[in-house]
Design a binder for these strands. Structure first.
Lengths: 221, 221
DNA sequence: ACCATACGTTAGGTTATTCTAATACTATGT
DNA sequence: ACATAGTATTAGAATAACCTAACGTATGGT
């Protein structure tokens, strides 16, 4: 059986290699909040066991075996997160920590039952795609709210990495996936955006708009 | 934060001290399937940390602090088990292992949400009482099926420790909590019992009947 | 070309949990 | 009373996961 530590390293490397071709030792250390030597040592063992490639001074990437494990854990994480929001009444900012612990103990069997119980969701509460049990994942991106012109009506599709405080903030604003938002004004020079959500008018910072992916609604009739 | 190992020792000691005043080193070792020295060493540390009393050559028992932890973990175990059966479609024999892993990662918050989601169940799928969040537990026993006279109608209240194979067996027979059963015949000298469950007639071994607690139904009219 | 900086690895050590093998203590039956 | 079975502990060691401190290596700026 794989340890929790091994699973954490593999999903961290998975996430990092979505942004760049390779994950660096120091990126991993920073993400997992452990020391550099700990990462060095662990990566050496992961390479030995066939979970990662380690190209000298270039970086670390997953083997297909490593990716399989990472996606399986990610699937459990996102199903757990979906359960927490959809059935247990969690808010977006409360989900991450709990899902991070659950992902390592949920069996394949329970993952399947959760998926069924939740009605085969395609995305988790942040809007991230849920890997299938066959290890497939639909990678897809939407433009961020920061790119939309004033006057557009959009539907929130995904909330990218935000700290807990900001997550709570947008969660309380109701700026969460599947919500329809009207962009009233966009201040220039990376200024705030004025939005209309559920008949409430709110202003949000540009930095936050950069982390919210949306789909523009085609004008009806 | 307490380790999984610590929690396992404490709930094991809790369970053992329900049957006898004290748990012995060897009982704990046998239950957790670890060596005697491991238990010796761990118990020494648990005593140091104020979770257990260790009376020389008499046995081990929980301090109130230790019992508090044990009941909190037990609460999570039983809520998880109830969830698995009630919502995820698990059968009785599939529950234990999964719940044993979940119990260590469920937060107090999630336990409360599960309790609510499940409609404040008083007992888990085996019929064991679920500790409250205040650390209270209703200890209560029913007579076993082995003590009931032929002709009685009973409702199954609890399934005591049975191995996985036997659990599967009675689970498939439908001999689970809240099911009404008619005791048709009881063979003497610890012989088999003939039961009527849902219009099906089945014979079960005496040893199994000893592990099934039931409540006799007062004859109606 | 050289050196500082960033990046990684070695060296050496800690803590928790586990093991086997050997030792000690206790209680009981003859 | 003493041997033996049963029970518990000590001794010594392994593994995993972490740490700090010290040491290499490569790259980019001057």
């Amino acid at each position: 059986m794989l340890t929790e530590s091994t699973e954490m390293y593999l999903i961290t490397i998975y996430r990092l290699t979505l942004k760049a071709m390779y994950a660096s030792t120091s990126d991993i250390a920073a993400t997992l909040d452990v020391s550099l030597p700990s990462v060095s040592e662990k990566v050496r063992r992961l390479a030995e066991q066939g979970y990662v490639y380690h190209e000298w001074r270039q970086g670390i990437s997953l083997t297909s075996q490593g990716r399989e494990v990472a996606l399986n854990v990610l699937r459990k994480h996102r199903l757990a997160a979906t359960f927490l929001v959809q059935m247990a009444g969690y808010l977006l900012d409360e989900v991450y920590e709990e899902a991070c612990r659950l992902e390592h103990v949920i069996s394949d069997r329970l993952a399947d039952r959760l998926e069924e119980l939740l009605g085969y969701p395609r995305v988790d509460p942040y809007g991230y795609p849920i890997p299938g049990k066959d290890g497939t994942i639909a990678i897809h991106h939407y433009p961020t709210l920061a790119r939309v012109a004033a006057g557009a009506t959009v539907v929130v599709q995904r909330i990218n990495d935000l700290d807990q405080a900001r997550l709570r903030y947008i969660s309380e604003l109701g700026l969460v996936p599947n919500v329809r938002v009207e962009v009233l004004e966009v201040a220039p020079f990376e200024g705030p955006l004025i939005l209309k959500i559920d008949d409430r008018t709110v202003a949000i910072a540009y930095a936050i708009a950069c982390e919210i992916e949306v789909e523009e609604v085609t004008k009806e009739v």
